[in-house]
């Protein structure tokens, strides 16, 4: 089993972990976004709340969500470690620095990552934690099909949060960071896996740009819509 350890601790192995976990998180985002769009269903939160109930109670999804938490943590911890190692590998820096080809995003992945992680903490603390571990969120047991079960009214909590301007702004900053993180991260994940090809790489890059604009934009619409509603 030594080979696995060697792989996981090699420079390329570490990058491949970043790439794979990153791609997993990328695949999670659209699913999350589609669910969230139900906040704008205009039904007083029924669709969203029952969806949230499903997501927190289905055993398969529960299992997947633990994987998700693990990958987020792995991606974050590994990312920080790589950033530290890379900084020491560079040693001192130049007096004049004009790294060519270097975009702001590509050089600030760790900073963006930390921003996103901080945002995630706020986000999870506000909704997920409160829903799971406190009784601050009221129960509703009148939804058809869920009579007597009791579905938590997460919708009201979300609506309350997004009626405050500063929370909306925090969300927009978090999503902006996510967008920049994705601009570099999306195509970079493919390069790290060795998927670089004269014909397909431009396609991947284009897809990456589109993704990193559309997904954060989609998420951003919700708090804005709910704030102005």
């Amino acid at each position: 089993m030594k080979w696995i350890i060697n792989f996981l601790f090699s420079s390329i192995g570490k990058k491949i972990i970043m790439s794979l976990t990153g791609l997993f998180l990328i695949s999670f985002l659209p699913v999350h976004l589609l669910g969230n769009f139900q906040l704008m269903a205009g039904d007083g939160g029924e669709a969203f709340n029952t969806y949230a109930y499903f997501m927190t109670n289905n055993p398969l999804i529960k299992f997947t969500s633990y994987g998700l938490y693990f990958f987020i943590l792995l991606h974050a911890v590994q990312g920080i470690m790589i950033a530290i190692k890379n900084k020491s590998a560079k040693g001192s820096n130049y007096k004049v620095s004009t790294y060519k080809n270097k975009t702001w995003a590509s050089n600030n992945m760790a900073f963006l990552g930390i921003l996103i992680f901080a945002f995630l903490c706020i986000h999870m603390g506000d909704f997920w934690f409160k829903m799971k571990f406190t009784s601050q969120i009221a129960m509703i047991d009148t939804y058809p099909g869920y009579e007597g079960i009791g579905v938590k009214d997460l919708y009201t909590r979300v609506a309350a949060a997004f009626s405050q301007l500063w929370i909306v702004i925090v969300y927009l900053i978090g999503l902006l960071a996510l967008g920049f993180h994705l601009v570099h991260g999306f195509s970079s994940a493919f390069q790290t896996l060795g998927l670089n090809h004269k014909k397909y790489t431009p396609l991947i890059k284009g897809l990456g740009y589109a993704y990193s604009v559309l997904i954060p934009l989609g998420f951003a619409i919700i708090p804005i819509w709910m704030y102005f509603k």
Partner: peptide
């Protein structure tokens, strides 16, 4: 250090060596 796919190397290489080679190394690894 580790490669973060920035591409500064490729831009500054006086012989124009492409980072496609890095992808090949990753693949081979």
């Amino acid at each position: 250090g580790m490669c973060s796919n920035i591409g500064a190397c490729e831009a500054e290489c006086p012989k124009g060596i492409s980072i496609e080679n890095i992808a090949m190394l990753n693949r081979s690894y």
